[in-house]
């Protein structure tokens, strides 16, 4: 009874864990005993584990991560500083909205990553080039989500605050900010994904350090276990960041929990 009860309560995580362990076991078994193992073409969990240990104990991986993080943070922070006010003004002033909306929509819809070769050409392969790329990809989710958030503020709530004699300041603090914040956080989640794309593309394209470079370099030299470690670490970081933001969304706006698909 007790075991069954626990299983019913935590069915999802238990099944997820079983499935992960199962995959690792089947993978290891198949590659070891069933098919002929070619280390230049494939790898197996035990080799990845060894590589993980080596890389975590060495300092190269940490340096790569630090370098990529710096580029990411610079670009992302700039995107926040530029994107949120820009979106807010677009949402609040109709003329600004009319003027900028088609231009930004065209940019948001197009694969800006296509500019990567040019940006690297202009700003170089170092920190600046990557940060500019991150900014360019991450700024639009902030602009458009802030804009949508401000636009979709319930007119009724605005009228309520005005009817009770609220000043403009009250309007911003008590109505518009709370109803826009969830949109901004959702935008941040999108921006993280796009920002990571920026770093990776920049480092794949031309770099001599950074996690993206490391993955590409391990690939070029056929060190598959190390390459998998890089991919897995990047996945873990991405999952942690997006899940943290999702939790944060639930905390600041539990009533909107159902609104967005993942």
């Amino acid at each position: 009874m007790g075991v069954k009860r626990i299983y019913e309560e935590y069915q999802r995580p238990i099944l997820g864990l079983i499935s992960l362990i199962g995959l690792v076991a089947v993978w290891e078994f198949t590659v070891t005993y069933v098919i002929e193992f070619n280390p230049f073409f494939f790898t197996k969990p035990s080799h990845i584990a060894t590589a993980t240990k080596e890389l975590l104990l060495g300092d190269r991986l940490w340096r790569d991560l630090a370098i990529s993080s710096r580029a990411f943070l610079w670009g992302f922070t700039t995107a926040v500083i530029v994107g949120i006010p820009m979106g807010a003004v677009m949402g609040w002033r109709t003329r600004v909205e009319y003027t900028l909306d088609p231009f930004f929509t065209a940019l948001y819809a197009s694969p800006l990553v296509a500019l990567a070769p040019l940006i690297i050409l202009i700003f170089g392969v170092g920190l600046t080039g990557k940060a500019v790329l991150v900014f360019l990809l991450a700024v639009f989710p902030f602009i458009f989500n802030t804009y949508t958030g401000v636009k979709s503020t319930d007119q009724l709530l605005i009228n309520v605050v005005r009817a009770f004699g609220g000043k403009e300041r009250h309007l911003y603090v008590n109505v518009i900010l709370p109803s826009t914040l969830p949109f901004i956080v959702a935008g941040a989640r999108l921006a993280i994904g796009r920002g990571i794309v920026g770093v990776i593309v920049g480092e794949f394209y031309a770099a001599s350090e950074g996690i993206g470079f490391a993955i590409a370099h391990f690939g070029d030299t056929y060190r598959l276990p190390e390459m998998f470690v890089g991919i897995i670490i990047l996945s873990i970081i991405a999952v942690l960041l997006t899940e943290a933001l999702r939790k944060f969304e639930l905390i600041i706006a539990p009533y909107r929990a159902e609104m967005e698909t993942r």
Binding site: F41, G193, V197, I200, F218, I231, S235, V239, E243
Partner: peptide
């Protein structure tokens, strides 16, 4: 969850090998 959160581009070097 993991594949969706991570930009799929990180798989490019592996896909080129394969």
């Amino acid at each position: 969850t993991a594949l969706n959160a991570t930009p799929r581009l990180v798989w490019l070097p592996l896909l080129i090998i394969w």
